[in-house]
Amino acid sequence: MLNQYMEQIEVVGLNLFFASIFFFIGMAIHDVLKQGEVPKFGRYIVWAVLFLGCAGFIAKGIIQMTWEGSGIG
């Protein structure tokens, strides 16, 4: 039974891995910004860039699922 779902397990595991990496990157950035006493404008820019990177990754996953569901990819 495990062999039937191996590809699906790999996809879920890879997505969870990337989510955890984004979380740890966010925690590291938060710590650096806090200890470096970065001004608010700089913090907003850093978080905006991090959010856009994460949003792009999520959008890629949604587009990929949509295309595969409709038989394009």
Rank of each mutant, 00 (worst) to 15 (best):
Q64S: 14
A19H: 02
G56V: 10
F51M: 13
D31K: 15
F23N: 02
I9P: 00
F24D: 05
F51S: 13
M27D: 08
D31S: 14
G36E: 03
G73F: 01
N3M: 06
V11H: 03
G53A: 09
I9H: 01
N15C: 04
G56N: 07
Q4M: 03
G26Y: 12
Y44R: 14
G71L: 00
A19S: 10
I29F: 13
L50I: 06
V38W: 07
G36Y: 05
L16E: 06
L33D: 01
A28C: 07
F51L: 14
L50H: 02
I63H: 02
K60H: 14
D31M: 15
S20W: 03
F41L: 15
I58G: 04
I29D: 01
N3D: 13
C54L: 08
K60C: 04
A28E: 11
N15F: 10
F51G: 06
I21E: 04
M27R: 15
Q64W: 12
T66Q: 01
W67Q: 11
I63Y: 02
V11E: 12
Q64F: 13
I25M: 12
L50A: 13
L14G: 00
I62W: 09
I21L: 05
E7N: 09
D31F: 15
L16D: 06
S70Y: 10
M6G: 00
L14F: 06
M27Q: 14
Q8I: 11
K34D: 05
E10P: 00
A28N: 12
S70A: 12
F24A: 09
L14H: 04
F23P: 00
N3I: 13
I63S: 05
W67T: 09
I9S: 01
P39N: 14
M65Q: 11
A19Q: 05
